[in-house]
Write a protein that binds this DNA or RNA. Structure first.
Lengths: 193, 193
DNA sequence: CTATTAATATGATGCAGATCATAATTTAAC
DNA sequence: GTTAAATTATGATCTGCATCATATTAATAG
């Protein structure tokens, strides 16, 4: 079930500007969102305003299904990180996709399993490991889908928000990893080795 | 796809004694495990031996699918907490279930979504919240499936292993929550209010 | 090119929770 | 009922990271 197929079936694209909010905690889920272009981040926010990035979603990915499937209110915000075109697929249409498109249901199972893997990995890190270990793990994970020599387009703040650390700690941690030779930088940005 | 149905189809039950290990990190996944009786816990262990409980699985539940589905080595141990009877369903049989049993595939999607919900909740807690908040969240989550007045059959150590805290911290934290009136005890055990 | 704004950097201080030690209590085993 | 093992309890100390303050550098806008 790709974007083109959804368009063929008459689903409409909605445009979202950077920083707009697709949904927020407490809302009842009504749609699953398929991304045609742009980027969003799913974040939970603590009482004192600290963001934790639960996931980042880009072109050709979808988000928002678990809440629909288990029929519970959202726990997180989803915020547009880069201007985006998104196709909201309603509740019933979504369940029809699952029922009638074996390929989609297989893809969904794969997608959910992948996210579980990521979250299990991060839970272990946050529960048991210290700053540098957490950083190295997330960096290795993120460099998985780029080529050797390419740079990771991510800020220290984003690394902080993915690892539950603070920017200052990330900055110091990254330095330590560089000194140790665990990672390399190019003009301040982490590159895959 | 319930246990009886699997038995009818000729799948065999395997007995596991308490403390035996169903699989450990690094192993290639070959089976999905359906629990007929007993209980297992899925844990990751840090370099210095600290356990983190990724999940607890009981009668009529299954575990081990994500690794099969994404075809990656296990990240965690699964250890038998109470003598168990388990039906290992091989790789191919499992994929046949997904393909040929729409009900099973729907159930799997539900199950995966529920686990994602739990893990997202815990990630937020571990990333952003302090001891007492974490404890209250996990206690509320656990008391979801018992009746008012019933006691939670869980030790402080287990609470520690689910929240990434240390026993002493859990003991002190539980006391604080009791003082605040957030939770109640009965002979040392937490009861649902 | 210059002005803003965002990102990275660095030191000083504080504190929540880990760690260590040791004891009291409850539960299980015989 | 007695012993052993597990669980809960409590105080003292240590430490990694948060927090706060303030620069420096890099990226972006006009």
């Amino acid at each position: 079930m790709d974007i083109q197929e959804l368009l063929n079936r008459g689903f409409r694209v909605k445009k979202y500007r950077k920083d707009s909010i697709v949904y927020e905690p407490g809302m009842l889920p009504k749609f699953v969102y398929f991304i045609k272009s742009g980027e969003v981040r799913m974040v939970t926010v603590s009482d004192d305003g600290k963001e934790f990035i639960q996931g980042i979603f880009k072109r050709d990915q979808y988000f928002g299904e678990p809440a629909i499937i288990v029929n519970r209110r959202y726990l997180a915000y989803t915020i547009v990180s880069k201007d985006a075109e998104i196709i909201p697929v309603g509740n019933n249409d979504f369940f029809n996709l699952i029922r009638n498109e074996p390929n989609f249901s297989t893809d969904l199972i794969q997608t959910l399993s992948n996210r579980l893997f990521y979250k299990s990995m991060m839970l272990e890190e946050l529960a048991n490991e210290k700053a540098e270990h957490r950083l190295l793990t997330i960096i290795n994970y993120l460099t998985n889908d780029i080529e050797v020599g390419e740079t990771l387009k991510i800020t220290r703040q984003e690394l902080a928000d993915m690892t539950g650390l603070r920017v200052e700690t990330v900055i110091r941690g990254v330095k330590i990893l560089v000194d140790r030779g665990s990672i390399k930088l190019n003009r301040g940005k982490i590159i895959k080795i």
